[in-house]
Amino acid sequence: MTHWFAIIMGAALFTLMIPVIYRIWVGPTSFDRILGVNVIGTKTAVLLVVIGTLFDRVEMFVDFAISYALLNFVGAIVISRYLNRTISLKDMEAREKEGARKR
């Protein structure tokens, strides 16, 4: 029963990831894409526990799930920070141009 539950759960998770992948594909802004990647990363941690249940080694796969969730968090913070920085650089360039015009 546990195995069937895990198999059905994994298949359903995988099916429900398809709309998210669609959002990554067409996402009008880059933030939409990152959001989709973040959602899939969180769900991958769940999928790792599912695979662990299938292989009867949950205690091993839970460690992978923790480190995957950790790397997902670091990735999201990195990307938001990077976009923040490039945006403020853009601001600064615009300000520099304005300053040059005033002069």
Partner: peptide
């Protein structure tokens, strides 16, 4: 937290 950081960046 990562949602918040993304939202702020956006």
């Amino acid at each position: 937290t990562s949602s918040h950081a993304l939202m702020r960046a956006a």
